[in-house]
Design a protein around this nucleic acid. Structure first.
Length: 271
DNA sequence: AATTTCCGCAACCGCAGACTC
DNA sequence: TGAGTCTGCGGTTGCGGAAAT
């Protein structure tokens, strides 16, 4: 699955690494460290360039490199971090211990890009469905946009906290304090932008936090021409709270039912 | 069963910033 | 301060296996 080994015109070996080369590099770095990648291959007895050695060490041989499939929470975190940092893979990698920038980049291109793309498509379709109320839609879009940074700032440290296995209840209470930028001034108390219902299941009795990355929220935005609150539905994973999808009630409920683990579906609150 | 197309991922390449002299 | 070198980053490539035809 990798490039076949070959030698360039300078006698430098390229392509796939052999087990013997891996062992030489590993042994050398573990004994002497890697203060100078350029000189390292010569001392280690390798016919590779320093750059290639560095890459091989960082992406494959380093003892703390985590290999294997990505967990659901890692996936969610990558999506969230990519939303915040863009293609800053090294930055994203620092938030995922054991994963390398190269690996995350590959994973993004092969898996998550599609996930994101699908979400955007679905979102677009939903906007069309709910497009009969343009003013509400416009207002919602604006507010989500305005609060994206705010939400990100609120949630980012939080997500890390959760990742370190803190209780969901913390998150729930924290999110409910997310407020509109416009209204959050030092002079006036912040007005809640979102009000969250109770979690639809007893997560405290659930051993695996990440089995249920879903919450259902109720938005109390008011239509400009109407005093009555309009309840919008949101579906969002715990790790991507600003990646909401505005949906009509029935659609929301159907989606929630679909995404919730079967044993929790009966506990989901319909709007 | 043979061939073609698609997909995943390790590795390469070029560039930019940091560092040294 | 400017040139040279080194390191790290992000984009891209190419190979081999899997899936489709």
């Amino acid at each position: 699955m990798v490039r076949a080994p070959f030698y360039d015109k300078n006698g430098i070996k390229k392509g796939a690494w052999s087990a013997e080369e891996d062992e030489k590099l590993r042994a050398y770095v573990q004994e002497h460290g890697h203060c100078n990648w350029r000189e390292l291959p010569r001392y280690a007895g390798l016919l590779r360039c320093g750059k290639s050695c560095r890459l091989r060490w960082i992406n494959y041989l380093r003892p703390d490199v985590k290999r294997g499939n990505y967990s659901k929470e890692e996936e969610q975190l990558i999506l969230q971090l990519h939303q915040q940092y863009g293609n800053k893979w090294s930055m994203i990698a620092t938030k995922l211990p054991g994963r390398t920038d190269n690996e995350i980049k590959n994973y993004w291109h092969t898996h998550l890009k599609k996930v994101k793309s699908n979400k955007n498509t679905k979102k677009h379709q939903n906007e069309e469905i709910s497009g009969n109320n343009k003013s509400i839609q416009k207002r919602e879009t604006t507010i989500i946009s305005e609060n994206k940074t705010n939400l990100t700032n609120e949630i980012m440290p939080l997500s890390h906290q959760i990742f370190e296995s803190s209780p969901i209840s913390t998150l729930s209470s924290e999110i409910s304090t997310v407020t509109s930028n416009q209204e959050s001034t030092q002079d006036s108390p912040p007005t809640p932008l979102f009000k969250f219902q109770e979690e639809p299941y007893d997560h405290h009795n659930n051993g695996d936090l990440w089995v249920n990355p879903l919450f259902v929220a109720e938005n109390y935005l008011e239509a400009e021409s109407d005093q009555n609150p309009i309840n919008f539905g949101f579906i969002g994973g715990f790790n991507q709270p600003y990646d909401f999808e505005l949906l009509d009630e029935n659609y929301l409920f159907c989606q929630a039912m679909k995404e919730l683990p079967e044993n929790y579906q009966s506990q989901l609150y319909p709007f």
